[in-house]
Design a binder for these strands. Structure first.
Length: 277
DNA sequence: AATGGGGCCTGAGAGC
DNA sequence: TGCTCTCAGGCCCCAT
């Protein structure tokens, strides 16, 4: 499932291919993929003939600002992929949106579970868009400090894992990187957010940035159920560095204790019972 | 206001 | 072999 590192990998790949390109054809093969619009025709009308100015990311969302002060948003949800392809390559199953460009390339949106979607929205500034108005801080940005994380966690009874995954506070973190960040910080993810002391918050802050940075360098995680592929159709490699996520029952890479996988309050979390307190 | 739970959706894998 | 069931989980909506 694409989280910040996967989306950032895709952003970097499609940026060089799409910046300055004109959308000369658009097809919607499944209406649900553009469900924010009244109909696929409305989406196509909004995108056709537009030039893509750049390729940005906010949290787990890819933004393609267009030349008429609108922006094409792509949310990948659970199983979404964006691939750059030449027109003569056969479509993958579950390809639901195809944008063709003036250089014969295509941007294809593929999404078996259709939790994701594409939409054209007003404006260029992601921090002013109604669609993203509830989004919190970018964890790799300068604004994300240990002090800010402490304020976000303060007074919250919810589990740490739940707060980290809540896009209203910190964006871009899902199950993989919430579990991995807690491991690296040595913190039991079953604790409440408010229970962390200053030193633990500082460790967690550092861990989040380290895990996300390493995962981007590894071009994302393609887990066991991971349909995740990058814009060229290649797998990521961060699954080789995972410590806890999807490693239930396997020995901890640090201490050898079997990794636990437990449901708690409707959430399932992976952790090392020895390394995380 | 904060929190919890349900629904969306389909493919993979388990169990019979 | 082939069916049914369960699980995966981001995000939105609603209830408490």
């Amino acid at each position: 499932m694409p989280e910040l590192p996967e989306v950032e990998t895709i952003r970097q790949q499609i940026c060089s291919q799409l910046c300055g390109r004109v959308v000369c054809n658009a097809q919607v093969l499944r209406a649900r993929a553009v469900r924010a619009h009244e109909s696929p025709a409305v989406f196509i009308e909004a995108i056709l003939g537009r030039t893509i100015l750049e390729v940005q990311r906010r949290g787990k969302v890819i933004l393609l600002p267009l030349d008429n002060h609108t922006t094409l948003l792509a949310r990948l949800g659970m199983s979404g992929q964006l691939q750059i392809s030449s027109a003569d390559i056969p479509l993958l199953a579950h390809t639901y949106v195809i944008l063709s460009f003036d250089n014969a390339a295509e941007l294809r949106y593929i999404d078996p579970r259709t939790f994701g979607q594409m939409a054209v929205v007003a404006g260029h500034d992601p921090y002013k868009m109604a669609e993203l108005s509830h989004y919190g801080v970018e964890p790799l940005g300068d604004e994300f400090s240990a002090e800010l994380l402490a304020r976000l966690l303060a007074g919250k009874k919810a589990l740490i894992q739940a707060v980290l995954m809540d896009q209203r506070f910190v964006v871009g973190i899902g199950k993989i990187y919430a579990d991995e960040s807690c491991f690296l910080a040595g913190i039991d993810p079953r604790r409440s957010a408010a229970s962390l002391n200053e030193i633990e918050v500082s460790r967690l802050h550092e861990a989040i940035r380290t895990v996300l940075t390493r995962a981007i360098a590894a071009r994302g995680t393609s887990g066991a159920d991971g349909a995740y592929r990058d814009a060229a159709g290649s797998l990521g490699s961060f699954q080789q560095q995972l410590h806890v996520y999807q490693r239930a029952g396997k020995p901890c890479r640090v201490c050898g204790t079997p990794i636990e996988f437990r449901p708690l309050q409707g959430r399932r979390m992976h952790f090392c019972p020895h390394c995380q307190r």
